[in-house]
Simulated scan of single mutants.
Amino acid sequence: MSTGRTVVAARDGVALAEPTQADLDLVNAGSDGPYDPDEDPRPGLYLPPVHRLLVVDAETGEPLGKVNWLPVTYGRTLSCHAWNIGIGLVAAARGRGVGTLAQRLLVEHLFATTELDRVEADTDVDNLAEQRALEKAGLRREGVLRGAQLRGGVRRDMVKYGVLREDFQ
C-alpha cells in the first residue's frame, strides 16, 4: 500500500491506518448509516475522547470504513476501565468479512498497546450481521441493554458484547 498512510495493523488484505480528515469525510459520505442514532443538539454528560483508525484494502489503500474506540468506566480506577469499540463500513465493503477482521485487528491492537483488560461493543438488536462479526472477532454476547439508543424517534435495544485480555491469550 503506497498511500503514505501509517499502518497500525494488517492481515489478510485488511489494514488499519491513521486517517486524515479527508479520509474520514470520504468514508462518512460512503456510508448510509442504517444504525446511526438520532442527532441530539444537547451535549452528553460525559464526552470521552474518541480514537479512530481508517479501515483500508491493504493492497490498494482504498478506504473501506473506520473503526473507533473510546474509554468507558465501571469505577474510579484504571482497572475498572474498558474500551468500547465501533465500526462503520462503506456499503460496498459489507458482507465480505472486512468488519470481522477490522474489529479483530483493533482488539488485538488495543490489548497490545494499552493496559486495559476489557474491550466491549454494542450493536442494535436487529443488526444480525454485526452480531455475527463481533462473535467471529472473538467477543462474547453478554446481554441486552433495553432502550439504550434513540433511532427514528424510537428507543432501541442494544446487544452488549465483550472480551477480556485473558480470553484472548
Rank of each mutant, 00 (worst) to 15 (best):
R52H: 13
M158T: 06
V107S: 04
D40I: 07
R146D: 08
P48D: 06
R140P: 08
D25M: 06
G152T: 09
L116S: 05
L105P: 03
V90G: 02
P71S: 13
V72L: 09
V8Q: 01
P49S: 13
D117Y: 09
K66L: 12
Y35M: 10
A137W: 08
L89I: 01
D38H: 11
G4T: 12
D126K: 09
R132C: 05
L105N: 02
G4I: 09
A102C: 03
E62R: 11
R140H: 15
P34D: 07
A129D: 05
G30M: 06
A17Y: 06
R96F: 06
L150I: 10
Q131W: 06
G44H: 00
W69G: 04
D157T: 08
L24R: 07
L106E: 06
G153D: 03
M1F: 07
R94W: 01
Q21C: 12
D157G: 05
H109C: 00
G153A: 06
T123V: 11
L78M: 15
V14Y: 07
V125Y: 07
V107T: 10
G44E: 04
E39G: 11
A91Q: 14
G95L: 03
L45D: 12
G61P: 05
G147C: 12
L45I: 02
L47Y: 05
G88L: 14
L145D: 00
Q103D: 00
G61L: 09
G30A: 13
C80M: 15
D32M: 10
G61Y: 10
V144K: 14
D40H: 14
Q169N: 08
E59S: 14
E166K: 13
Y161N: 09
G88P: 02
R146C: 02
G30V: 00
